[in-house]
């Protein structure tokens, strides 16, 4: 597709700090290349703002290759914008029309408080991971060959699919209940499918679920919105598996 240049009006959430009430501010932006990514478009806006002596818009980003999970943004009412299976850095301006008004907000959830403008604090995900998103097996010195343990191809594939979750929080941002079930379920499933992870399956599911609830995420109501908006296409299969793992732990668990 040939490069075009479009004019857009950006409605951006501006918030000085966590205490500030914040508000939407309009920024007209001219001659935006349709080949630029959404974040590059914001870079251009920020250069203009800096040149005018104004405060640039703060937003999260890191790898800009769609693999780190750092970029966020709720664009025109959808996490990572209108495109499917992409992060915001992989969203391109060709998805927008000339003259369009684009609304840009931070991911909103009680468990994701705004730090500044479009940057939110996603440490709640880290605290959930610290409760069991790992395998406590000593791997230093005498690591076994991965192929020494036979694993069913389907299980290996499903575990790998779950492990592709980049922890961006798009599922939480999208969910009408701000539920973190897709994220936590992927982190539970990637281990519960594999023999190394099965050892601590019960403790993992109980502890991670408990932390998820403590952080103030909402309850899953199976709308399926998370799966649609997930940049990595994490499946609702993981949520069903998480539900099953919880039942196993709650019913058969020793405590």
């Amino acid at each position: 597709m040939a490069e075009k240049f479009i004019n857009v009006t950006l409605k951006i959430w501006r918030q000085k700090n966590a205490q500030d009430a914040g508000k939407m501010v309009d920024y007209p932006l001219k001659n935006v290349s349709t080949d630029s990514s959404f974040l590059e478009m914001l870079d251009v806006l920020n250069e203009e703002l800096v040149a005018k002596g104004e405060e640039p818009v703060a937003f999260d980003h890191d790898c800009r290759e769609g693999i780190c999970g750092m970029c966020s943004l709720y664009i025109n009412g959808e996490a990572h914008g209108p495109d499917r299976a992409v992060t915001t850095c992989q969203l391109h301006m060709r998805m927008f029309k000339d003259g369009e008004t684009i609304t840009i907000e931070p991911f909103r959830a009680t468990a994701f408080p705004v730090i500044k403008d479009l940057i939110v604090d996603r440490d709640s995900f880290d605290r959930i991971m610290q409760k069991g998103g790992f395998v406590s097996v000593n791997t230093s010195g005498n690591t076994q060959d991965a192929n020494a343990l036979p694993i069913r191809k389907e299980d290996a594939d499903n575990a790998f699919d779950a492990a592709t979750c980049i922890g961006c929080g798009g599922c939480v941002a999208t969910c009408k209940n701000a539920s973190a079930m897709l994220f936590v379920s992927a982190k539970v499933a990637q281990f519960s499918l594999l023999p190394q992870g099965k050892v601590e399956a019960q403790e993992r599911v109980k502890n991670m679920l408990h932390q998820m609830d403590v952080e103030g995420f909402g309850n899953c109501t199976n709308t399926g919105a998370c799966e649609v908006e997930c940049p990595k296409g994490i499946s609702l299969d993981n949520i069903a598996r998480f539900n099953r793992e919880y039942m196993k732990a709650a019913v058969l668990g020793s405590e």
């Binding site: 409605k11 959430w13 939407m24 709720y74 025109n76 009412g77 609304t103 907000e105 909103r108 959830a109 009680t110 468990a111 705004v114 009408k176 209940n177 701000a178 539920s179 103030g216 995420f217 909402g218 309850n219 109501t221």
Partner: peptide
Amino acid sequence: NRKARTNKYAM
């Protein structure tokens, strides 16, 4: 669930 997002989206 409402408490999990007290600050609503503009869009």
